[in-house]
């Protein structure tokens, strides 16, 4: 068939967090219209038929909004294309006969659960430390009762597009979470609802980030370049500014 495509996969297999992992090679018959995750489904069907253990990988919405998929493909988080997640990557981005290497996010703060699936609860703990606003319960407030300039709303939304996938950490040579934390802090610092906890939030989130074992920022820009939502590096500058301001105020 004209549309047939044969590729060789080098996949990281690791039984659990403590086990020693290694690359395994698989031949997969796929076609250019398949998504990268569908190609993995095909591989897993094949492995199950052969009575072997299928490859564990994270996925959920398969439309680029949930932030679950997490594969480092040929050395790049979410693969060779910019601005998309692994689930939005298609086999047409590769050539017939290619050898493709697939690894999990690698960072001490993202321990491997199994194969390509990693534990990202360190991100949850950073959010729990301060990445929220406190509101009174009761009836929903009228949408226009707090006026927010369009420009500010747009900037906040740009930061809010972060899906928390962790590609920034996986791309960073220091496994730093600054782009993720920067996006959350920027979003809430811009909006009136975020003002009450503004200084306490940034200090708490940065403390948690450091405690989780993420590295410091070297400003290489790798995170922003690999971010599927194209969060700009300026959110890190905002985070630095917010943190400094809070610290100078004795927080």
């Amino acid at each position: 068939m004209e549309n047939e495509m044969k590729i060789k996969l080098k996949v990281w297999r690791q039984e659990n967090e403590k086990a020693q992992g290694k690359f395994e090679e698989y031949d997969v018959n796929t076609n250019p219209d398949m998504s990268f995750l569908e190609m993995f489904d095909v591989l897993n069907e094949q492995l199950i038929t052969e009575g072997k253990d299928p490859v564990a990988f994270d996925h959920d919405c398969r439309e680029g909004i949930c932030g679950m998929c997490s594969m480092v493909i040929d050395g790049r988080p979410h693969g060779p294309k910019g601005g998309i997640t692994t689930c939005q990557l298609h086999m047409r981005s590769f050539n017939n006969g290619d050898t493709i290497s697939v690894e999990p996010w690698r960072a001490n703060s993202f321990p491997v659960i199994k194969d390509l699936s990693v534990n990202r609860s360190s991100f949850d703990r950073i959010i729990a430390a301060g990445g929220f606003v406190s509101v009174n319960t009761g009836n929903a407030v009228d949408a226009n009762s707090i006026l927010i300039p369009k420009e500010t709303a747009d900037k906040a939304f740009e930061a809010a597009t972060c899906i928390g996938c962790g590609a920034c950490v996986s791309a960073c040579k220091n496994a730093s979470a600054m782009l993720f934390v920067g996006a959350k802090v920027t979003q809430l610092a811009l909006l009136p609802q975020g003002q009450a906890e503004r200084e306490a939030r940034v200090v708490a989130m940065v403390n948690q980030m450091d405690a989780e074992g993420f590295g410091a920022c070297s400003n290489t820009g790798a995170c922003a370049a690999e971010c599927p939502k194209e969060i700009p590096l300026s959110v890190i500058a905002t985070l630095n500014r917010e943190y400094m301001k809070a610290k100078m105020n004795g927080k």
Binding site: K10, W12, G21, F23, V72, D74, G75, S101, E103, R106, A107, N108, S109, V112, K173, N174, A175, S176, G213, F214, G215
Partner: peptide, 9 residues
């Protein structure tokens, strides 16, 4: 030291 297991590629 933040990435003990390095990338293969």
């Amino acid at each position: 030291m933040r990435r003990k297991q390095k990338y293969g590629k």
